[in-house]
């Protein structure tokens, strides 16, 4: 049974596991509205992050929508909307 909740702490864990942490960046700070680029994550890091979210949460994230999710808040929103769809279905 895939997880149904996806929180900022889940995202922090997956970022650390999949892509590591940039020097000088504190992921535990308030990062909801900080650009991923500013957090040190380029497109490949986000690809790896989304791959991990997809397999852990049983969702399929749309590539174009992903490209538009430039902050943790936007990515959380995207994952939530997919989780909602999964449960509605």
């Amino acid at each position: 049974m895939p997880n149904t909740e996806f929180t900022i702490d889940d995202l922090r864990r997956i970022l650390r596991e999949g892509a590591g942490t940039e020097e000088g960046v504190d992921l535990d700070a308030d990062i909801l509205d900080t650009d991923f680029e500013e957090l040190g994550y380029e497109s490949l890091a986000l690809l790896e992050t989304c791959g991990r979210i997809e397999r852990e949460y049983g969702v399929t994230l749309d590539d174009d929508a992903l490209a538009g999710a430039r902050t943790p808040r936007a990515l959380l929103g995207l994952v939530h909307s997919h989780l909602a769809t999964v449960h509605a279905g």
């Binding site: 596991e17 999949g18 892509a19 590591g20 020097e23 040190g40 890091a45």
Partner: peptide, 8 residues
């Protein structure tokens, strides 16, 4: 090495 480099 920085943490960002380890997974890759």
């Amino acid at each position: 090495l920085p943490g960002r480099l380890l997974p890759q």
